[in-house]
């Protein structure tokens, strides 16, 4: 059965800066910085307690971040130190507020804890982040490459990876080219 609703009920939307304040209160040592831009707030955090912070945001009844909108990586090569950031976009379907977490990940130790225990949908996002940036997610049930073939070399979205790909062709495609060359003599030419 289908019900049509107008969604005009009241909701408890929190100001993003107030949410950032709450995170700071709860984890004073973890929060590095709070940046506000165009009404959106990023909370820059250290990576060590990412699961605890996410669990707090997920379980707290006032915050209630039940929907993980997006997880992605950013490579700040030569711009920021540490090099990588893993970005979490959290949203509360009930309260309609949003917050962004930027977890810092260094180049020498590109590892961060997985949050798959909290949101099941994050599974593929983390795999993609591993595929594109080479950031490993500890505790992920099935960390494989997802978009590119398993034996692909390099991590494409890193800034030092050329857009047109490296000189050396991926072995699977090189095989196809060779096969095509071999079979060309059997092509009908009329």
């Amino acid at each position: 059965m289908i019900v049509e609703v107008n969604m005009k009920f009241p909701y408890m939307k929190m100001d993003p800066l107030a949410i950032a304040e709450r995170i700071k209160e709860k984890f004073p040592l973890e929060v590095v910085d709070v940046v506000s831009f165009r009404d959106q707030v990023s909370v820059i955090i250290k990576k060590e307690k990412i699961v605890e912070i996410c669990r707090f945001l997920h379980d707290d009844p006032v915050l209630d971040f039940d929907h993980l909108r997006d997880l992605c990586g950013v490579d700040y090569l030569g711009k920021k130190e540490p090099r990588f950031e893993v970005i979490y976009h959290l949203y509360s379907v009930r309260h309609r507020h949003m917050i962004r977490l930027n977890a810092q990940v260094s180049e020498s130790d590109p590892k961060i804890d997985s949050v798959t225990s909290l949101w099941a949908g994050v599974n593929w996002h983390e795999r993609e982040c591993f595929d594109m940036f080479g950031i490993k997610f500890k505790g992920h049930p099935d960390l494989r490459r997802i978009l590119l073939p398993e034996d692909w070399e390099g991590y494409p979205l890193r800034k030092d990876y050329p857009l047109k790909g490296p000189e050396k062709e991926w072995s699977g495609f090189a095989e196809v080219l060779e096969k095509a060359k071999k079979y060309r003599e059997f092509d009908w030419e009329g």
């Binding site: 940046v35 831009f37 165009r38 959106q40 990023s42 909108r69 997006d70 992605c72 950013v74 970005i87 976009h89 949003m98 962004r100």
Partner: peptide
């Protein structure tokens, strides 16, 4: 463009399409 990062989602027929710009 001013420096910053932004995530904007819109409702496309399939669901939530979000663009995140740095």
């Amino acid at each position: 463009v001013p420096e910053g990062e932004i995530y904007v989602a819109t409702e496309v027929p399939k669901g939530e399409l979000g663009f995140y710009f740095v």
